[in-house]
């Protein structure tokens, strides 16, 4: 009896000791940590064209990287004070909660259960994606609702897997899943007829189509079967840092609305006419200080990477190989979903 008791107490004390680090509420403030450390750790995707991709110049580039630059500029006034920590879908949330990264920028859909139970907080949208289908033109399919009985290539462990299941159940259709990790193998499978359709994020499908020898033989269906608001995440109960993440994004969006670009931001900062511009760029009031940042935070972020529209066009826009249209990522006044709350 005594023995069992000792063992039990030993086990409890070990669990308590090890559990301390894991579950005890962490009151450390990431903003302070980051400032003390002198740079921030940005959790980005490991290789997604247009979003986070090592370029031929050995530098990371893409929309996610640009956000990291903006954040680094906002906090330090220097766009280079960040480290890219690539995270995979499997490890991204644990990397965040185990403090390996300060912010999760990798395209991660904001969902109810993630927000509710994973110990992370949603901070802001960064890109509105959807889910669609890439299919051979010769099949003559024009709508996703004609896909009954199709063989579908799906990447494992993603929200797209579940979305497809939901979609086909809703319309009472059947499909055969072929589970292949997204990449050249999937394209090969489609080309060789192992599957009739590829499903993935619309942003990925657009660029996938370009990788075929004759892209014109393939078509991305018009249907969008899911909402995929790719978002920025921080650790739970880290509100000061969350504010910095949210409002850095908002500043870049607001800049587009106010017509502030990377090129003219200096001009605007010197001679602000619009009081909204003056507040944003720190010419009036002490708006940066409210966040614990320098007053020129927004100015620094914009001069590092430009406004939201510029970031979009440079990385994934119609001039790039990705060739995406703004679509849902247009400003609210153009009919899109991109919107920044008022700066006042």
């Amino acid at each position: 009896m005594i023995k069992i008791k000792t063992i039990l107490s030993a086990i409890t004390s070990v669990t308590l000791l090890t559990g301390m680090g894991a579950t005890a509420p962490v009151f450390a403030d990431t903003l302070d940590d980051v400032k003390k450390r002198g740079f921030l750790r940005c959790g980005t995707g490991e290789a997604k064209a247009g979003f986070a991709m090592p370029g031929d110049n050995n530098q990371w580039q893409g929309m996610e990287i640009d956000y990291c630059k903006a954040l680094s500029s906002a906090v330090f006034g220097d766009e280079t004070k960040f480290e890219v920590v690539p995270v995979t879908s499997k490890v991204r949330f644990t990397s965040l909660t185990s403090r390996e990264i300060d912010v999760l920028v990798k395209g991660t859909t904001w969902t109810y259960s993630r927000d509710a139970k994973l110990g992370v907080d949603f901070a802001a949208y960064w890109f509105f994606d959807g889910q669609g289908f890439l299919i051979k033109k010769e099949l003559g399919v024009t709508s996703a609702k004609q896909l009954n009985g199709a063989t579908i290539c799906i990447s494992p462990g993603t929200t797209s897997e579940k979305n497809v299941a939901d979609f086909f159940r809703t319309y009472d259709m059947k499909y055969k899943p072929v589970v292949i990790k997204a990449g050249p193998e999937t394209l090969d499978a489609l080309q060789k007829g192992r599957c009739d359709v590829i499903t993935n994020d619309l942003s990925a499908l657009a660029s996938d189509r370009q990788k075929f020898t004759n892209p014109d033989d393939f078509v991305v269906l018009q249907d969008n079967i899911a909402k995929e608001p790719l978002s920025l995440y921080v650790r739970q109960n880290d509100s000061r840092w969350k504010d910095v993440i949210t409002w850095t994004r908002n500043a870049l969006v607001e800049a587009e609305e106010l017509g502030i670009t990377q090129e003219n931001v200096g001009q605007h900062a010197k001679h602000p006419i619009d009081p909204r511009v003056a507040r944003l760029l720190g010419a009036k009031g002490a708006y940066g200080e409210m966040l614990g940042l320098p007053n020129t935070w927004a100015h620094d972020a914009i001069s590092a990477v430009g406004n939201y529209g510029e970031i979009f066009e440079r990385n994934v826009g119609e001039q790039t190989r990705m060739g995406l249209t703004r679509n849902l990522n247009q400003q609210w006044y153009d009919g899109g979903l991109v919107f920044a709350p008022p700066f006042r």
């Binding site: 064209a49 247009g50 995979t88 050249p184 090969d188 660029s207």
Partner: peptide, 26 residues
């Protein structure tokens, strides 16, 4: 180690295949 996000030699190859420019040359 690719699965925990480290870009080792093979992962750089995979990244190259996922890039826009070089996606065709897997």
């Amino acid at each position: 180690v690719a699965i925990i996000g480290l870009l080792d030699f093979l992962s750089v190859g995979m990244a190259t295949m996922n890039s826009d420019e070089w996606g065709k040359y897997g």
